[in-house]
């Protein structure tokens, strides 16, 4: 049995094909590059399941919108478009700071990486702050999911459409908010490790993967924003 490894562009002494050069390389991978590709493939598979997780909720939302078209349009008037647009902008900027952080990581700029990670966390916190403001406003008005719905307003009486709208609103933005919270945790973990100088051109996989996760969270919001705040 022979094992031959042809590496066209070897990145120095770590890619020796025997797996003992880089301390980050696990023994079951041929080299760092194979490890990186494998890990990234796994991350993309996870992201595909995330798309399908939210996809189920999007399909449900779409079907209920078809069933209660008038109620959904009326209910969405209670969402403040300006706050939704603000949060979209904040998340897009955070996606940019994240990608700049990944770039800093792979070009050995430790200080820049930490700064960009902290900026990303700051944007995430602003997003959640705005979301908290929105949620508390809905709570005070009784615009709540399912049988908690208790809004005293001049709407179609007896219709389940409003409660259904807010069920989906809280479910989807809530699940998205949980993803933001998880993202903040991951970003903080990465920032601490980056501050210790653990990442470099040779090894920045965790930064890259957290970046992919963060962009997916942004991507989901890109669809949530028009569907909830802009339908008419």
């Amino acid at each position: 049995m022979s094992t031959s490894t042809v590496d066209v562009h070897s990145h120095g002494p770590h890619d020796d094909g025997h797996g003992h050069g880089d301390p980050h390389q696990q023994h079951h991978f041929t080299n760092m590059e194979q490890q990186f590709d494998t890990v990234k493939l796994g991350m993309w598979l996870f992201l595909a399941t995330e798309v399908l997780l939210f996809g189920g909720l999007f399909v449900g939302f779409g079907l209920m919108q078809q069933r209660y078209p008038r109620e959904f349009v009326e209910a969405h008037e209670f969402l403040q478009r300006s706050l939704g647009a603000l949060n979209t902008t904040v998340l897009l900027i955070s996606s940019w700071t994240m990608v700049m952080g990944v770039m800093a990581a792979k070009s050995n700029q430790k200080k820049k990486l930490v700064v960009f990670l902290l900026l990303t966390i700051l944007c995430a916190c602003i997003f959640l702050g705005v979301k908290y403001f929105e949620y508390s406003h809905k709570y005070e008005e009784g615009l709540l999911p399912g049988h908690f719905y208790s809004h005293k307003g001049n709407l179609i009486p007896g219709s389940h459409g409003y409660a259904t709208f807010f069920s989906f609103y809280f479910m989807m933005t809530g699940l998205h908010g949980i993803h933001i919270l998880v993202g903040i945790g991951l970003l903080a973990w990465i920032a601490i490790r980056a501050n210790r100088g653990e990442f470099s051109e040779a090894y920045y996989t965790p930064v890259d993967l957290v970046g992919l996760y963060w962009h997916l969270v942004d991507l989901i919001w890109i669809y949530l924003f028009p569907l909830y705040y802009l339908i008419s």
């Binding site: 598979l45 992201l47 399941t49 399908l52 996809g55 399909v59």
Partner: peptide, 18 residues
């Protein structure tokens, strides 16, 4: 391909449900 497959299957899900 995996990213595209995720969206493709979501599209199938969405289309057939509607």
């Amino acid at each position: 391909l995996i990213a595209a497959a995720g969206f493709l299957f979501l599209g199938i899900f969405l289309m057939f449900s509607f």
